[in-house]
């Protein structure tokens, strides 16, 4: 059940093979939904669910899918799961689904999904594929959460909607940084995280 290979499928994507930090995939949504921590976490959760189950489904079908039409089959599976997640969000947390707007629907175009389906699910059994999906989704979520943490804290002075920066600071001249709310700072925050990550993992540095 938890062999060494399965363990690496689950935990490697958290840091060493992180889809965002190392493979630089899924950047677009990382920029778009990270102005606040709440939507970023929901987005991360949605990606985990879609990625894990599409990995399992494709893995189950891997021997019956003709190679020539495999991309279309993958898209159909992912699209079906995305629609389920989207309807679920609209039903149970309407406000968050409003904030995420098109980006839940756009999970289907997230390169992490196609990447994992092509690279892993097509060649592995369902259980490792499930772990791989969860691991990559978690790696994506962690990065989103860190970016959103700094953007919401510095940009709005709140975390998950709760006021964190005390009123005392505002009375003494502190102001929220409007630039953090704008998309460019998501890119720069992400770059800083990659910077720290690379400097701690020297073997990932490109020569």
């Amino acid at each position: 059940m938890i062999s060494k290979k399965n363990k690496s499928a689950l935990f490697n994507p958290l840091s060493q093979e992180n889809p965002v930090l190392v493979q630089i995939l899924g950047i677009c949504s990382a920029l778009a939904v990270t102005a606040n921590l709440g939507p970023a976490l929901v987005m991360g959760l949605s990606v985990i669910v879609v990625l894990a189950f599409s990995n399992v489904i494709i893995s189950l079908m891997r021997k019956t899918i003709p190679t020539t039409i495999r991309i279309i089959v993958q898209l159909v599976v992912v699209a079906a799961l995305v629609i389920i997640v989207q309807q679920f969000l609209i039903a149970f947390s309407y406000d968050v689904s409003k904030q995420l707007s098109v980006f839940v629907g756009l999970i289907i175009t997230n390169c992490i999904l196609m990447g994992r389906l092509e690279a892993f699910a097509l060649n592995n059994r369902p259980w490792p594929s499930f772990l791989d999906g969860v691991g990559n989704g978690l790696g994506y979520t962690i990065v989103l959460a860190i970016v959103a943490f700094f953007r919401e804290l510095l940009g709005s002075g709140t975390l998950l909607g709760f006021q964190v920066v005390p009123q005392w600071c505002y009375e003494h001249g502190y102001e929220n940084n409007g630039l953090m709310i704008l998309p460019p700072m998501a890119l720069i925050t992400l770059a800083c995280i990659i910077w720290v990550h690379r400097s701690r993992n020297a073997e990932l540095q490109e020569k």
Binding site: E175, N177, G178, L179, M180, L182
Partner: peptide, 10 residues
């Protein structure tokens, strides 16, 4: 520019 976009009111 950083000041301008970060703290437009100031």
């Amino acid at each position: 520019a950083v000041l301008f976009f970060s703290y437009p009111s100031k």
